[in-house]
Design a protein around this nucleic acid. Structure first.
Lengths: 209, 209
DNA sequence: GTCTATATGAAGATAGAC
DNA sequence: GTCTATCTTCATATAGAC
């Protein structure tokens, strides 16, 4: 006996302001104190509510962890794909990888609490949480591998190292910049330009000895 | 009224086997679960003793943390300095930096629990523990800066990026290899050669576009 | 939707026997 | 040097009022 006649009932509000606030504060606290050391009381305090109220929005601390981890990859992945797909079809491998690097850095630095939390705590969380998060990580790695394979086939990428190892090295190096990047020491544009130059052409000048 | 006549009394045993075992197991657990999530009961279990016995060797969990952190830097720093100082005076900047990179990677991968624990948890520990550990980190960074400044003055290092930024990028990239290096996929020598080539000359071939 | 109050478990650290 | 037993504190999660 539904008395409602609306065709478009309001969807379950999965991203109310309070819910988003909890996720953001949780990411910030996970980043700076770790997952286990962060208490739901702290998350609640930072979010302007009481601890018990968190359970209206989330089933458990574990569920909050999962959403924080996933978002840490999603924001970066979305920025990368958007930039790469905006390029013309005739773009060179250098241009495509430069777009990916810019997107990765931009996504990381604009959602630093989610990405840094992800990077810092991924190695420390329970195996079950890791397993649930693994797929989304794998997909992002695959996207990079496809970019690198393409660059290799065009003869632009160095061929003495596997693309998997290049991906691990480059993403690892990029990821760590979120730990030390200081926006007060220069513009984001300059930062991207310098990081990209080092990744592409290295730290030394001249020919290999 | 000392009745001992020995000139060389046994020193306080600061590195008994049990004490070293506790440090090693603590490093391993800090690495994989984080500092807060690791309980002294787990450390004791892994060390083959009971939780209360830890307090015979250490004053607190905090003291164990401090020693684990310091050792994570010391083992790497010692390996780097040893290799650089073994070079002849006429070594090029490339040779000196290559020795530093090899030492850094060797130290990291041969003491992985200490270095990975350091890298993973440094951003998450209480401020007091960070402050106590800061000096030893600063000294290692200074050593790298001196190597890079030397390379810059000889005109071998790229000049469009500050040595501080190059250091942060390179050490960050090297540090993260401990998270993914797989000794079953090739020899350590080959690994070092490939990483060094990327750091020196980049991931792309040919001239910058 | 948010609150207060609380059940239940486990942490770091200490005391004192052996 | 290591043990057992315990003090004290604080965590996640739940129940039910508002």
């Amino acid at each position: 006996m539904a008395t409602k006649s609306r065709e478009n009932p309001a969807p379950v509000e999965v991203d109310s302001a309070t819910r988003e606030r909890i996720l953001l504060e949780a990411a910030r606290l996970f980043r700076h104190h770790g997952y286990a050391a962060t208490t739901l009381r702290e998350v609640a305090d930072a979010s302007g509510i009481k601890a018990g109220s968190i359970y209206y929005h989330f089933e458990s601390k574990d569920q909050i962890l999962g959403e924080v981890l996933d978002k840490g990859i999603q924001v970066v992945s979305a920025a990368v794909q958007q930039r790469v797909e905006a390029l013309p079809a005739e773009a060179t491998a250098r241009q495509r990888l430069a777009a990916a690097i810019e997107g990765h850095l931009w996504g990381m630095l604009h959602h630093g609490d989610f990405t840094s939390a992800n990077i810092r705590i991924y190695g420390q969380i329970p195996a079950a949480a890791k397993n649930r998060h693994r797929k989304i990580r794998r997909e992002y790695a695959d996207y990079w591998d496809s970019l690198l394979e393409d660059a290799l086939q065009r003869g632009e990428l160095r061929a003495d190292t596997s693309t998997a190892m290049i991906r691990l090295f480059v993403i690892g190096a990029l990821n760590w910049t979120v730990e030390w990047y200081n926006p007060q020491k220069g513009s984001f544009q300059d930062f991207v330009k310098q990081i990209t130059a080092i990744v592409f052409d290295g730290t030394f000048v001249g020919e290999p000895a």
